[in-house]
Design a binder for these strands. Structure first.
Lengths: 181, 181
DNA sequence: ACTCGTTTTTGACCTTTGTCAAAATTTATT
DNA sequence: AATAAATTTTGACAAAGGTCAAAAACGAGT
Protein backbone atom coordinates (compact mmCIF):
# COMPACT_ATOMS: atom_id res chain seq x y z
CA UNK A 1 0.00 0.00 0.00
CA UNK A 2 2.37 2.67 1.21
CA UNK A 3 5.41 1.27 -0.55
CA UNK A 4 3.81 2.30 -3.83
CA UNK A 5 3.64 5.89 -2.66
CA UNK A 6 7.05 6.43 -1.17
CA UNK A 7 10.23 4.42 -0.80
CA UNK A 8 10.69 3.87 2.93
CA UNK A 9 13.54 2.05 4.56
CA UNK A 10 13.04 -1.08 6.58
CA UNK A 11 13.31 0.48 10.03
CA UNK A 12 10.40 2.81 9.28
CA UNK A 13 8.34 -0.02 7.92
CA UNK A 14 9.06 -2.12 10.99
CA UNK A 15 8.03 0.69 13.31
CA UNK A 16 4.91 1.28 11.25
CA UNK A 17 3.94 -2.39 11.40
CA UNK A 18 4.37 -2.30 15.16
CA UNK A 19 1.88 0.54 15.46
CA UNK A 20 -0.78 -0.38 12.96
CA UNK A 21 -3.79 -2.37 14.10
CA UNK A 22 -6.41 -4.29 12.11
CA UNK A 23 -10.11 -4.19 12.88
CA UNK A 24 -13.41 -5.12 11.34
CA UNK A 25 -16.38 -2.85 11.76
CA UNK A 26 -19.99 -3.74 10.99
CA UNK A 27 -22.30 -1.46 9.09
CA UNK A 28 -23.46 1.53 11.10
CA UNK A 29 -20.42 1.98 13.31
CA UNK A 30 -19.05 5.50 13.68
CA UNK A 31 -15.27 5.76 13.38
CA UNK A 32 -15.30 9.45 14.24
CA UNK A 33 -17.91 11.57 15.96
CA UNK A 34 -18.78 15.20 15.75
CA UNK A 35 -17.54 16.97 18.88
CA UNK A 36 -14.81 14.48 19.72
CA UNK A 37 -11.27 14.81 18.44
CA UNK A 38 -10.59 12.18 15.81
CA UNK A 39 -7.74 10.08 17.13
CA UNK A 40 -7.23 7.64 14.25
CA UNK A 41 -6.59 7.45 10.57
CA UNK A 42 -7.65 4.36 8.63
CA UNK A 43 -6.82 2.52 5.49
CA UNK A 44 -9.86 0.70 4.08
CA UNK A 45 -9.08 -2.84 2.99
CA UNK A 46 -12.69 -3.67 2.39
CA UNK A 47 -16.00 -1.85 2.81
CA UNK A 48 -17.63 1.49 2.16
CA UNK A 49 -17.73 4.58 4.38
CA UNK A 50 -18.91 8.14 4.29
CA UNK A 51 -18.05 11.37 6.02
CA UNK A 52 -20.97 13.50 7.15
CA UNK A 53 -22.04 16.14 9.60
CA UNK A 54 -25.34 17.12 11.16
CA UNK A 55 -27.20 20.23 10.17
CA UNK A 56 -30.44 20.53 12.09
CA UNK A 57 -32.57 17.49 11.36
CA UNK A 58 -30.66 16.50 8.25
CA UNK A 59 -27.18 15.24 7.75
CA UNK A 60 -24.82 16.28 5.01
CA UNK A 61 -22.47 13.79 3.38
CA UNK A 62 -19.05 15.18 2.51
CA UNK A 63 -17.39 12.17 0.93
CA UNK A 64 -17.65 8.48 0.18
CA UNK A 65 -14.70 6.13 0.51
CA UNK A 66 -13.96 2.61 -0.69
CA UNK A 67 -11.30 -0.04 -0.69
CA UNK A 68 -7.76 1.31 -0.79
CA UNK A 69 -8.81 4.75 0.42
CA UNK A 70 -7.34 6.44 3.46
CA UNK A 71 -9.94 8.07 5.67
CA UNK A 72 -10.07 10.24 8.73
CA UNK A 73 -11.91 13.30 9.90
CA UNK A 74 -9.10 15.30 8.39
CA UNK A 75 -9.40 18.72 10.01
CA UNK A 76 -9.95 17.22 13.40
CA UNK A 77 -7.18 14.68 12.99
CA UNK A 78 -4.55 17.22 12.07
CA UNK A 79 -5.59 19.83 14.63
CA UNK A 80 -6.86 17.41 17.30
CA UNK A 81 -9.76 19.79 17.81
CA UNK A 82 -13.31 18.44 18.10
CA UNK A 83 -14.47 16.99 14.81
CA UNK A 84 -17.20 18.50 12.70
CA UNK A 85 -17.30 15.39 10.63
CA UNK A 86 -18.52 11.91 11.50
CA UNK A 87 -17.32 8.80 9.75
CA UNK A 88 -19.88 6.07 9.26
CA UNK A 89 -19.44 2.53 7.98
CA UNK A 90 -21.98 2.02 5.18
CA UNK A 91 -20.88 -1.51 4.29
CA UNK A 92 -19.10 -3.59 6.86
CA UNK A 93 -15.41 -2.93 6.67
CA UNK A 94 -11.93 -4.24 7.38
CA UNK A 95 -9.45 -1.53 8.10
CA UNK A 96 -5.87 -0.89 9.17
CA UNK A 97 -5.59 1.97 11.62
CA UNK A 98 -2.99 4.04 13.38
CA UNK A 99 -3.46 6.54 16.18
CA UNK A 100 -2.57 10.21 16.06
CA UNK A 101 0.02 9.74 18.78
CA UNK A 102 1.73 6.88 17.03
CA UNK A 103 1.75 8.78 13.79
CA UNK A 104 3.36 11.78 15.47
CA UNK A 105 5.94 9.46 16.90
CA UNK A 106 6.70 8.18 13.42
CA UNK A 107 7.04 11.72 12.14
CA UNK A 108 9.42 12.47 14.96
CA UNK A 109 11.54 9.35 14.85
CA UNK A 110 11.66 9.14 11.06
CA UNK A 111 11.50 12.64 9.62
CA UNK A 112 11.32 11.27 6.09
CA UNK A 113 7.97 9.78 7.05
CA UNK A 114 6.58 13.29 6.88
CA UNK A 115 6.57 12.86 3.14
CA UNK A 116 3.66 10.47 3.59
CA UNK A 117 1.73 12.99 5.62
CA UNK A 118 2.50 15.70 3.13
CA UNK A 119 1.32 13.73 0.12
CA UNK A 120 -1.77 12.63 1.95
CA UNK A 121 -2.88 16.08 2.99
CA UNK A 122 -2.05 17.46 -0.45
CA UNK A 123 -4.37 14.89 -1.95
CA UNK A 124 -7.08 15.69 0.53
CA UNK A 125 -6.72 19.34 -0.36
CA UNK A 126 -6.98 18.77 -4.10
CA UNK A 127 -10.09 16.66 -3.70
CA UNK A 128 -11.77 19.14 -1.40
CA UNK A 129 -11.03 21.99 -3.78
CA UNK A 130 -12.49 20.04 -6.65
CA UNK A 131 -15.68 19.42 -4.72
CA UNK A 132 -15.91 22.98 -3.49
CA UNK A 133 -15.55 24.39 -6.99
CA UNK A 134 -18.33 22.13 -8.20
CA UNK A 135 -20.63 23.19 -5.41
CA UNK A 136 -20.01 26.82 -6.10
CA UNK A 137 -20.00 26.86 -9.89
CA UNK A 138 -22.27 24.17 -11.18
CA UNK A 139 -26.04 24.00 -11.11
CA UNK A 140 -27.73 21.14 -9.30
CA UNK A 141 -28.18 19.31 -12.58
CA UNK A 142 -24.57 19.82 -13.66
CA UNK A 143 -23.31 18.51 -10.36
CA UNK A 144 -25.40 15.39 -10.74
CA UNK A 145 -24.18 14.77 -14.28
CA UNK A 146 -20.60 15.25 -13.17
CA UNK A 147 -21.03 12.65 -10.45
CA UNK A 148 -22.64 10.34 -12.97
CA UNK A 149 -19.61 10.64 -15.24
CA UNK A 150 -16.91 10.56 -12.64
CA UNK A 151 -18.11 8.21 -9.94
CA UNK A 152 -21.03 6.22 -11.35
CA UNK A 153 -20.40 3.37 -8.91
CA UNK A 154 -21.47 5.57 -6.00
CA UNK A 155 -25.00 5.64 -7.32
CA UNK A 156 -25.18 1.87 -7.07
CA UNK A 157 -24.27 1.56 -3.46
CA UNK A 158 -25.69 4.53 -1.66
CA UNK A 159 -29.15 5.92 -0.86
CA UNK A 160 -30.52 8.94 -2.71
CA UNK A 161 -30.69 11.02 0.44
CA UNK A 162 -26.97 10.63 1.06
CA UNK A 163 -26.14 11.43 -2.53
CA UNK A 164 -28.37 14.48 -2.59
CA UNK A 165 -26.69 15.93 0.46
CA UNK A 166 -23.28 15.11 -0.99
CA UNK A 167 -24.28 17.02 -4.12
CA UNK A 168 -25.55 19.91 -2.03
CA UNK A 169 -29.22 19.68 -2.94
CA UNK A 170 -32.44 18.39 -1.44
CA UNK A 171 -33.50 14.86 -2.08
CA UNK A 172 -36.55 16.13 -3.95
CA UNK A 173 -34.42 18.15 -6.31
CA UNK A 174 -32.22 15.18 -7.05
CA UNK A 175 -35.26 13.05 -7.68
CA UNK A 176 -36.63 15.59 -10.15
CA UNK A 177 -33.32 15.87 -11.93
CA UNK A 178 -33.18 12.14 -12.42
CA UNK A 179 -36.67 12.06 -13.86
CA UNK A 180 -35.87 14.44 -16.70
CA UNK A 181 -33.20 12.58 -18.52
CA UNK B 1 9.46 32.93 9.75
CA UNK B 2 9.91 29.22 9.30
CA UNK B 3 11.99 28.74 12.40
CA UNK B 4 8.85 29.45 14.44
CA UNK B 5 7.09 26.58 12.76
CA UNK B 6 9.67 23.84 12.86
CA UNK B 7 13.13 23.36 14.28
CA UNK B 8 15.42 22.93 11.26
CA UNK B 9 19.12 22.34 11.39
CA UNK B 10 21.59 24.74 9.90
CA UNK B 11 22.36 22.80 6.72
CA UNK B 12 18.69 22.88 5.71
CA UNK B 13 18.46 26.56 6.46
CA UNK B 14 21.56 27.26 4.40
CA UNK B 15 20.20 25.34 1.45
CA UNK B 16 16.87 27.11 1.78
CA UNK B 17 18.52 30.52 1.82
CA UNK B 18 20.42 29.59 -1.32
CA UNK B 19 17.19 28.85 -3.14
CA UNK B 20 14.89 31.57 -1.97
CA UNK B 21 14.63 34.78 -3.99
CA UNK B 22 13.20 38.19 -3.07
CA UNK B 23 11.01 40.24 -5.41
CA UNK B 24 8.74 43.23 -5.34
CA UNK B 25 5.57 43.20 -7.39
CA UNK B 26 3.40 46.21 -8.15
CA UNK B 27 -0.34 46.16 -7.84
CA UNK B 28 -2.03 44.24 -10.62
CA UNK B 29 0.66 41.65 -11.30
CA UNK B 30 -0.42 38.02 -11.60
CA UNK B 31 1.78 35.56 -9.72
CA UNK B 32 -0.10 32.59 -11.10
CA UNK B 33 -2.36 32.26 -14.08
CA UNK B 34 -5.24 30.01 -14.89
CA UNK B 35 -4.14 27.39 -17.39
CA UNK B 36 -0.44 27.48 -16.52
CA UNK B 37 1.13 25.29 -13.88
CA UNK B 38 2.02 27.35 -10.84
CA UNK B 39 5.77 27.02 -10.41
CA UNK B 40 6.31 29.07 -7.24
CA UNK B 41 5.24 29.43 -3.67
CA UNK B 42 5.57 32.78 -1.94
CA UNK B 43 5.85 34.23 1.50
CA UNK B 44 4.35 37.73 1.71
CA UNK B 45 6.54 40.16 3.59
CA UNK B 46 4.37 43.09 2.66
CA UNK B 47 1.29 43.65 0.54
CA UNK B 48 -2.11 42.15 -0.17
CA UNK B 49 -3.09 39.45 -2.66
CA UNK B 50 -6.07 37.43 -3.67
CA UNK B 51 -6.68 34.11 -5.37
CA UNK B 52 -9.42 34.06 -7.98
CA UNK B 53 -10.66 32.27 -11.05
CA UNK B 54 -12.74 33.28 -14.00
CA UNK B 55 -16.30 32.17 -14.48
CA UNK B 56 -17.78 33.60 -17.62
CA UNK B 57 -17.62 37.38 -17.43
CA UNK B 58 -17.12 37.49 -13.69
CA UNK B 59 -14.30 36.43 -11.52
CA UNK B 60 -14.60 34.61 -8.24
CA UNK B 61 -12.25 35.36 -5.36
CA UNK B 62 -11.24 32.34 -3.32
CA UNK B 63 -9.00 33.92 -0.70
CA UNK B 64 -7.25 37.07 0.45
CA UNK B 65 -3.74 37.04 1.84
CA UNK B 66 -1.64 39.51 3.81
CA UNK B 67 1.73 39.95 5.40
CA UNK B 68 3.19 36.74 6.82
CA UNK B 69 0.95 34.52 4.74
CA UNK B 70 2.22 31.82 2.44
CA UNK B 71 0.50 31.78 -0.94
CA UNK B 72 0.44 29.68 -4.05
CA UNK B 73 -2.13 28.25 -6.37
CA UNK B 74 -2.16 25.22 -4.12
CA UNK B 75 -3.71 22.49 -6.24
CA UNK B 76 -1.66 23.44 -9.25
CA UNK B 77 1.52 23.78 -7.25
CA UNK B 78 1.30 20.35 -5.68
CA UNK B 79 0.16 18.56 -8.82
CA UNK B 80 1.95 20.78 -11.34
CA UNK B 81 -1.19 20.62 -13.45
CA UNK B 82 -2.56 23.78 -15.06
CA UNK B 83 -3.88 26.15 -12.44
CA UNK B 84 -7.55 26.97 -12.03
CA UNK B 85 -6.63 29.79 -9.73
CA UNK B 86 -4.93 33.10 -10.49
CA UNK B 87 -3.01 35.05 -7.91
CA UNK B 88 -3.24 38.82 -8.15
CA UNK B 89 -1.37 41.49 -6.26
CA UNK B 90 -3.96 43.89 -4.82
CA UNK B 91 -1.48 46.11 -2.98
CA UNK B 92 2.09 46.23 -4.14
CA UNK B 93 4.03 43.49 -2.44
CA UNK B 94 7.43 42.27 -1.33
CA UNK B 95 7.73 38.52 -1.31
CA UNK B 96 10.18 35.70 -0.79
CA UNK B 97 9.70 32.91 -3.29
CA UNK B 98 10.92 29.43 -4.03
CA UNK B 99 10.33 27.31 -7.11
CA UNK B 100 8.63 23.95 -7.20
CA UNK B 101 11.82 22.29 -8.39
CA UNK B 102 13.92 23.76 -5.63
CA UNK B 103 11.36 22.80 -3.07
CA UNK B 104 11.31 19.23 -4.32
CA UNK B 105 15.06 19.21 -4.07
CA UNK B 106 14.81 20.31 -0.46
CA UNK B 107 12.30 17.57 0.25
CA UNK B 108 14.67 15.09 -1.31
CA UNK B 109 17.92 16.23 0.21
CA UNK B 110 16.46 16.93 3.65
CA UNK B 111 13.60 14.54 4.29
CA UNK B 112 12.77 16.29 7.55
CA UNK B 113 11.87 19.33 5.47
CA UNK B 114 8.75 17.48 4.43
CA UNK B 115 7.35 18.42 7.79
CA UNK B 116 7.09 21.97 6.50
CA UNK B 117 5.17 20.86 3.44
CA UNK B 118 2.95 18.69 5.56
CA UNK B 119 2.05 21.43 8.01
CA UNK B 120 1.46 23.87 5.21
CA UNK B 121 -0.91 21.70 3.25
CA UNK B 122 -2.69 20.70 6.45
CA UNK B 123 -3.33 24.35 7.15
CA UNK B 124 -4.51 24.97 3.64
CA UNK B 125 -6.89 22.07 4.02
CA UNK B 126 -8.35 23.27 7.29
CA UNK B 127 -8.94 26.74 5.89
CA UNK B 128 -10.55 25.48 2.74
CA UNK B 129 -12.84 23.20 4.70
CA UNK B 130 -13.88 26.07 6.91
CA UNK B 131 -14.76 28.20 3.89
CA UNK B 132 -16.53 25.35 2.13
CA UNK B 133 -18.69 24.61 5.15
CA UNK B 134 -19.69 28.26 5.36
CA UNK B 135 -20.61 28.38 1.71
CA UNK B 136 -22.71 25.30 2.01
CA UNK B 137 -24.41 25.88 5.33
CA UNK B 138 -24.86 29.56 5.93
CA UNK B 139 -27.20 32.00 4.24
CA UNK B 140 -25.77 34.95 2.35
CA UNK B 141 -26.39 37.19 5.35
CA UNK B 142 -24.81 34.76 7.79
CA UNK B 143 -21.70 34.46 5.64
CA UNK B 144 -21.36 38.20 5.57
CA UNK B 145 -21.74 38.52 9.32
CA UNK B 146 -19.18 35.79 9.84
CA UNK B 147 -16.69 37.63 7.68
CA UNK B 148 -17.44 40.80 9.56
CA UNK B 149 -16.63 39.09 12.84
CA UNK B 150 -13.65 37.07 11.75
CA UNK B 151 -11.83 39.21 9.22
CA UNK B 152 -13.16 42.75 9.51
CA UNK B 153 -9.92 44.17 8.09
CA UNK B 154 -10.70 42.64 4.69
CA UNK B 155 -13.64 44.98 4.30
CA UNK B 156 -11.34 47.95 4.61
CA UNK B 157 -8.97 47.05 1.87
CA UNK B 158 -10.93 45.32 -0.82
CA UNK B 159 -13.69 46.23 -3.28
CA UNK B 160 -17.24 45.03 -2.74
CA UNK B 161 -17.23 43.02 -5.93
CA UNK B 162 -14.31 40.93 -4.78
CA UNK B 163 -15.81 40.40 -1.39
CA UNK B 164 -19.17 39.42 -2.80
CA UNK B 165 -17.61 36.77 -4.99
CA UNK B 166 -15.51 35.56 -2.06
CA UNK B 167 -18.71 35.19 -0.07
CA UNK B 168 -20.41 33.38 -2.94
CA UNK B 169 -23.09 35.95 -3.70
CA UNK B 170 -23.75 38.68 -6.25
CA UNK B 171 -22.55 42.17 -5.58
CA UNK B 172 -26.14 43.39 -5.47
CA UNK B 173 -27.03 40.88 -2.78
CA UNK B 174 -24.08 41.95 -0.67
CA UNK B 175 -25.05 45.57 -1.10
CA UNK B 176 -28.61 44.85 0.03
CA UNK B 177 -27.39 42.88 3.03
CA UNK B 178 -25.23 45.75 4.15
CA UNK B 179 -28.11 48.18 3.92
CA UNK B 180 -30.28 46.31 6.38
CA UNK B 181 -28.20 46.41 9.48
C1' DA C 1 -14.90 72.85 -7.12
C1' DC C 2 -15.65 70.03 -11.57
C1' DT C 3 -15.33 66.10 -14.54
C1' DC C 4 -14.58 61.49 -15.83
C1' DG C 5 -14.51 56.88 -14.49
C1' DT C 6 -15.29 53.49 -11.28
C1' DT C 7 -17.85 51.44 -7.53
C1' DT C 8 -22.03 50.92 -5.04
C1' DT C 9 -26.92 51.07 -4.49
C1' DT C 10 -31.65 50.56 -5.85
C1' DG C 11 -35.82 48.68 -8.17
C1' DA C 12 -38.39 45.31 -10.89
C1' DC C 13 -38.62 40.96 -12.17
C1' DC C 14 -37.12 36.06 -12.86
C1' DT C 15 -35.04 31.48 -11.85
C1' DT C 16 -33.49 27.95 -9.14
C1' DT C 17 -33.96 25.30 -5.50
C1' DG C 18 -36.08 24.36 -0.93
C1' DT C 19 -40.09 22.92 1.95
C1' DC C 20 -44.03 20.35 3.25
C1' DA C 21 -47.21 16.80 2.67
C1' DA C 22 -48.99 13.05 0.37
C1' DA C 23 -48.71 9.22 -2.86
C1' DA C 24 -46.12 5.62 -5.00
C1' DT C 25 -42.59 2.46 -5.11
C1' DT C 26 -39.07 -0.53 -3.33
C1' DT C 27 -37.09 -3.48 0.22
C1' DA C 28 -37.17 -6.22 4.17
C1' DT C 29 -39.66 -9.23 7.42
C1' DT C 30 -42.81 -12.62 8.87
C1' DA D 1 -47.55 -13.70 -0.56
C1' DA D 2 -48.77 -10.14 2.84
C1' DT D 3 -47.52 -6.52 5.74
C1' DA D 4 -44.64 -3.20 7.46
C1' DA D 5 -40.96 -0.02 6.97
C1' DA D 6 -38.09 2.70 4.45
C1' DT D 7 -37.04 5.17 0.31
C1' DT D 8 -38.28 7.74 -3.68
C1' DT D 9 -41.36 10.48 -6.42
C1' DT D 10 -44.73 14.01 -7.23
C1' DG D 11 -47.32 18.39 -6.69
C1' DA D 12 -48.17 22.99 -4.89
C1' DC D 13 -46.16 26.66 -3.09
C1' DA D 14 -42.52 29.70 -0.95
C1' DA D 15 -38.12 31.83 -0.41
C1' DA D 16 -33.50 33.15 -1.41
C1' DG D 17 -30.81 35.03 -4.33
C1' DG D 18 -29.64 36.23 -9.33
C1' DT D 19 -30.01 39.36 -13.39
C1' DC D 20 -30.48 43.56 -15.85
C1' DA D 21 -30.63 48.34 -16.16
C1' DA D 22 -30.53 52.70 -14.30
C1' DA D 23 -29.41 55.99 -10.68
C1' DA D 24 -26.47 57.53 -7.06
C1' DA D 25 -22.22 58.03 -4.68
C1' DC D 26 -17.39 58.16 -4.44
C1' DG D 27 -12.56 59.44 -5.70
C1' DA D 28 -8.61 60.75 -8.39
C1' DG D 29 -6.85 64.23 -11.23
C1' DT D 30 -7.01 68.71 -12.90
Amino acid sequence: MLADLVPLNQSVIDALIEMVFSVDYPKGVLLAEQGKPCRYIYFIEKGVMRGFYHRGEKDITTWFAYEQDVVTSMSSFVTQHPAVENIEVLESASVKGISYDHLQELYRRFPEFNIVGRLLSERYYVELEERTLSLQNLSARERYIKLLNEQPHILQKVSLGHIASYLGMSQETLSRIRRNR
